[in-house]
Computed example of a mutant assay.
Amino acid sequence: MRLRSRRTVVVTGASAGIGRAAACAFAARGDRVALLARGRDGLAAAADEVQRGGGEALVVPVDMADPKAVEDAAEQVEETLGPIDVWVNNAFAGVFAPFMEISADEFRRVTDVTYLGYVSGTRAALRHMLPRDHGTIVQVGSALAYRGIPLQTAYCGAKHAIQGFNESLRCELLHQGSRVRTTMVQLPAVNTPQFDWVLDRLPRRARPVAPVYQPEVAARAIVHAAGHPRRREYWVGGSTAAALVANALAPGLLDRYLARTGYDAQQSPDLPPPETANLWAPADGPHGHDYGAHGRFDREALPGGPQEWLSRNRGRVGVGLTVGAAVLAGRRLVVLVRTVAGCAHPFRPAERLPTT
């Protein structure tokens, strides 16, 4: 797939946060963008941004927990915008609370939206992509797909499930020799409005664990992954890389560290929990509200970092390191050869002493 070609892109959870930023990033390259979410006010505002940004927008109100509605949404996109080139699974729901304070229905709802919504979106995309042997599915993941943290059992469980599901699907596509690609983008904490609408039973209002990144950082990674889907996954943010490496090397120590720090790190010291929650209904409500892409953490959120470039250019970095290592090894070899050569000069007979 040519990066510069105009594509038809589906973004779920596109009314706010990361989905909103990703939709605008796709629009900036001229793509046709289908916006899937529940909140109609957020969708309308997102569509306006996409159109002003240079893209073509299609609003499709849908609850990702309804598989039939997701299938119908895919049909609508194909009929209106044309064949789907890229499908971005991003929609989610969450609850901030200790596990025993989350009801069975609430836990199931988070799973239905955050995990099974990805499954339904992937299936809907594949029904159209596989016959054409063309297309890319981007699963928006998280460092929490590898490393669970306290107070987010439902969300972390769903992200872990997405990780396993995507790996299995990737193996199947490779076995079939399909040119349909799937890749995953593992994100750090992001400055989105979710912390002002998520169901929150903590003493103080939920917040992301620092360091926090701007949603445009995630959006750039998603657009890049859509254009370079042969990579199985991308890590975004130094904190994501650090968490995944630490969890691989010392998961038990990380358990204890998060047990000590994870509660306070996820709560704002000066705000009570929000009065509204979007678990069962969109947060914009009957009076209308557009949350936008950014949350309330603009002052501390990072606009990017070196790890973002490293993740996108891992191949170049690998080649550079290989060449550098080869050059260094070559220099050491030259020094060694010269040293050996110096020790191996032909024996010179001792100078004769002058005779008297």
Results as ranks from 00 to 15, higher is better:
T356K: 12
S239W: 07
E275F: 02
T8N: 04
E71Y: 03
A45L: 01
R52Q: 13
R331I: 12
T240W: 09
R231F: 07
W309F: 11
V223R: 03
A158N: 08
A97S: 14
D85I: 09
R179Y: 08
V77L: 06
A344E: 08
R6A: 09
A143I: 08
L43A: 04
P83A: 15
A243V: 09
S168Q: 13
L249I: 15
T261G: 01
A329D: 09
G54N: 07
L353G: 08
N278K: 02
R256L: 14
W309M: 08
R7T: 03
G238A: 13
D284H: 06
E167L: 14
W235D: 04
P272E: 05
A145C: 06
A225R: 02
T136S: 10
L202M: 09
R352M: 13
V95G: 02
A143V: 10
V140S: 03
G164C: 13
T8A: 04
F96N: 01
G252T: 12
Q51L: 08
G55W: 07
R256N: 10
G305Y: 03
G304R: 08
N90A: 10
I18D: 01
H128M: 09
R331A: 14
R123T: 12
L271N: 02
H228E: 10
L126V: 07
A57D: 01
T136Q: 02
W235M: 09
T111G: 05
A283K: 00
V70I: 11
H134R: 15
I149D: 00
G227K: 06
I137T: 04
V185H: 03
R52P: 00
A145Q: 04
G17T: 05
E75D: 14
L279D: 03
A350N: 09
L202Y: 03
A325N: 10
H287N: 11
A243D: 05
A246Q: 12
Y291I: 00
P67R: 12
V323W: 08
R312A: 15
R296N: 03
G324F: 09
L43Y: 05
P269H: 12
I84F: 07
G82Q: 09
L310F: 13
Q76G: 13
A250Y: 11
L202I: 03
G30T: 03
D105K: 11
V319L: 14
R127S: 06
I162E: 06
Y234F: 15
R179M: 02
W87R: 01
K68C: 07
L353V: 12
F297L: 05
L35S: 04
P346H: 13
A69Y: 03
A28Y: 01
T12F: 01
R299D: 14
A189N: 07
R181I: 00
H289N: 05
V190F: 01
L253D: 04
S168F: 08
V88G: 00
E233C: 08
N89E: 09
H345W: 12
G262W: 02
P188Q: 10
Q267E: 06
L130V: 14
A221I: 02
V113P: 00
G305K: 07
E167Q: 15
C343T: 08
A265M: 04
D112I: 08
R352A: 15
P251D: 07
L144T: 11
A22F: 06
V88P: 00
R204I: 01
P61G: 01
A145G: 15
